[in-house]
Simulated scan of single mutants.
Amino acid sequence: MALTVQQIRQDVADVLGEDPTDIPDDEDLGDHGLDSVRLMSLVEWWRREHAAEISFVDLAERPAIEVWAALMGAHA
């Protein structure tokens, strides 16, 4: 199942304990409390549930939903 931008935002919100509407697509997710442990859990989840071919390093280098969506080929 392909990821969508909305699904990425929802998954990020879930690991951060925030409302998805509070997480902008273009902001650094580290500023919202995303740390390496939470990021690794997202990477594993997306690999397992969505067959996403992503690496921790790729996502950690530019932690923003819009960048991740492009890397993962997510649909709007």
Rank of each mutant, 00 (worst) to 15 (best):
M1P: 11
M1Y: 06
M1K: 05
A2Q: 12
A2R: 15
L3G: 14
L3H: 11
L3I: 08
V5Q: 14
V5H: 06
Q6G: 12
Q6L: 02
Q7D: 07
I8H: 14
I8D: 04
R9I: 06
R9L: 14
R9Y: 06
R9M: 12
Q10T: 03
Q10L: 07
V12E: 09
V12L: 08
A13Y: 13
A13N: 06
A13V: 03
A13C: 10
A13H: 14
D14V: 02
D14N: 06
V15P: 08
L16C: 08
L16A: 12
G17K: 01
G17L: 02
E18Q: 11
E18Y: 11
E18C: 05
D19L: 13
D19V: 13
P20K: 05
P20T: 08
P20E: 13
P20M: 10
P20S: 04
T21A: 11
T21W: 07
T21G: 02
T21M: 02
D22C: 02
D22Y: 02
I23N: 04
I23L: 14
I23C: 04
P24D: 05
P24W: 00
P24T: 06
D25Q: 10
D25P: 00
D25N: 10
D26F: 05
D28H: 07
D28R: 06
D28W: 02
L29D: 01
L29R: 01
L29I: 00
L29C: 02
G30Q: 15
G30D: 03
G30S: 03
G30P: 00
D31T: 07
H32G: 00
H32K: 11
G33I: 04
L34C: 15
L34P: 08
L34S: 11
D35N: 15
D35L: 15
D35C: 08
S36T: 09
S36R: 13
V37I: 15
R38Y: 01
R38V: 01
R38G: 06
R38P: 07
R38A: 03
R38H: 14
S41Y: 04
S41E: 05
S41D: 10
S41F: 10
L42G: 00
L42T: 05
V43M: 13
V43A: 09
E44P: 00
E44F: 02
W45M: 13
W45F: 11
W46N: 11
W46R: 14
W46T: 01
W46D: 10
W46S: 07
W46Q: 13
R47Y: 04
R47F: 00
R47A: 08
R48S: 09
E49H: 05
E49K: 05
E49M: 01
A51N: 13
A51C: 02
A51D: 15
A51H: 13
A51I: 03
A52C: 04
E53S: 09
E53G: 07
I54D: 02
F56S: 11
F56P: 03
V57R: 10
V57L: 11
V57S: 04
V57N: 13
D58T: 15
D58Y: 01
L59C: 05
L59V: 07
E61Y: 03
E61W: 00
P63Y: 04
P63M: 07
P63K: 02
I65D: 14
I65P: 01
I65V: 13
E66H: 13
E66D: 15
E66N: 15
W68K: 10
W68T: 09
A69S: 10
A69E: 15
A70D: 15
A70Y: 00
L71V: 12
G73E: 10
G73S: 08
A74C: 10
A74R: 14
A74I: 09
A76C: 01
A76T: 12
